[in-house]
Computed example of a mutant assay.
Amino acid sequence: MQRPEAGKPLIKFNHCKKYIYSFSMPQCCPLCGQVTGSRKLEEAPVSISDPFTNGHQEKCSFLLRPTQGTFLREYDGRSDLHVGITNTNGIVYNYTTCGVQRDEVGWEQSVSIPLLQPGMFGLMDQWDKYLEDFSATEAWLPQRYEDDHHNCYSYTLTFINCVLTAEGKEQLGKREFTEKYVVPRTRKASKYITLYRAIEERGFYVTDRPDEETNPPEGSGSC
């Protein structure tokens, strides 16, 4: 399987009283054409946090990616998504029409949600055995797969609830888990995708600075 192309890093800098986003710091401002080599701290470029991660480098995590293609290239906001659970070696266990798969590649651009709190070494030591034993049950045979009711999401959430039970915690319903953990990350990812593609198309992207939106210029007043 071909590894997905890694996204380029994004930066943000201030110029012309605007926020300007790009893949790298340009020599000249794309708005006014002036040299951008300012010594002002507030105009220095800052990196934009990438919401995607190489899932194979994540331990004991819930992963989310498009069923086909990648987030930055093919995903259109309506495409089907696929989910899985990593073991302690970054192998992604996921349920499909072929049964439980154990992927060593293919999840290099994923949204990741850690499932263990720091310091839970006892549970981490048992994680791989729990995941393997869970995946070997008849519930996840290929013929049991149903697109709407017994799918990859059912598999991951059922395992997560088994872990919560082992921790003595309350189980989570699909809606609760999705709204609490998945939606905040997918919203952030959606904004990042929009920004990334706009920069790819135009070379940069411009927004108003919050202080410019909320604070009127000095000397201005209402009529």
Results as ranks from 00 to 15, higher is better:
Arg65Cys: 11
Arg65Lys: 15
Arg65Asp: 02
Arg65Gly: 09
Arg65Asn: 06
Arg65Trp: 01
Thr67Val: 12
Thr67Met: 14
Thr67Gly: 14
Gln68Val: 14
Gln68Trp: 08
Gln68Glu: 15
Gln68Thr: 14
Gln68Met: 13
Gln68Pro: 00
Gly69His: 06
Gly69Cys: 07
Thr70Tyr: 03
Thr70Ala: 12
Phe71Tyr: 11
Phe71Thr: 03
Phe71Arg: 02
Phe71Trp: 14
Phe71Ile: 02
Phe71Cys: 02
Leu72Met: 13
Leu72Ser: 08
Leu72Phe: 06
Arg73Ala: 14
Arg73Phe: 04
Arg73Tyr: 03
Arg73Lys: 15
Glu74Ser: 15
Tyr75Lys: 05
Tyr75Arg: 05
Tyr75Val: 07
Asp76Ser: 14
Asp76Arg: 12
Gly77His: 05
Gly77Asn: 04
Gly77Gln: 05
Arg78Met: 11
Arg78Thr: 14
Arg78Trp: 10
Ser79Asp: 15
Ser79Leu: 13
Ser79Tyr: 02
Ser79Asn: 12
Asp80Tyr: 10
Asp80Phe: 12
Asp80Gly: 06
Leu81Ser: 02
Leu81Cys: 11
Leu81Ile: 15
His82Arg: 08
His82Trp: 08
Val83Gln: 09
Val83Ala: 14
Gly84Trp: 07
Gly84Arg: 03
Gly84Asp: 07
Gly84Asn: 11
Ile85Gln: 01
Ile85Tyr: 04
Ile85Met: 04
Thr86Lys: 01
Thr86Arg: 03
Thr86Gln: 07
Thr86His: 04
Asn87Ser: 08
Asn87Val: 00
Thr88Gln: 12
Thr88Leu: 06
Thr88Val: 01
Thr88Met: 07
Thr88Pro: 01
Thr88Gly: 09
Asn89Phe: 03
Asn89Trp: 01
Asn89Leu: 07
Asn89Met: 06
Asn89Glu: 11
Gly90Tyr: 00
Gly90Ala: 06
Gly90Asp: 02
Gly90Arg: 03
Ile91Thr: 12
Ile91Pro: 00
Ile91Glu: 07
Ile91His: 01
Val92Ala: 05
Tyr93Thr: 08
Tyr93Arg: 02
Tyr95Ala: 07
Tyr95Leu: 07
Tyr95Gln: 09
Thr96His: 12
Thr97Val: 14
Thr97Glu: 15
Thr97Gln: 13
Cys98Lys: 15
Cys98Glu: 15
Gly99Thr: 14
Gly99Gln: 09
Gly99Glu: 10
Gly99Leu: 09
Gly99Ser: 07
Val100Ser: 10
Val100Gly: 13
Val100Tyr: 10
Val100Glu: 09
Gln101Cys: 15
Gln101His: 11
Arg102Asn: 08
Arg102Tyr: 13
Arg102Trp: 08
Asp103Arg: 01
Asp103Val: 00
Asp103Trp: 02
Asp103Gln: 10
Glu104His: 07
Val105Leu: 10
Val105Phe: 06
Gly106Asp: 08
Trp107Tyr: 13
Trp107Asn: 01
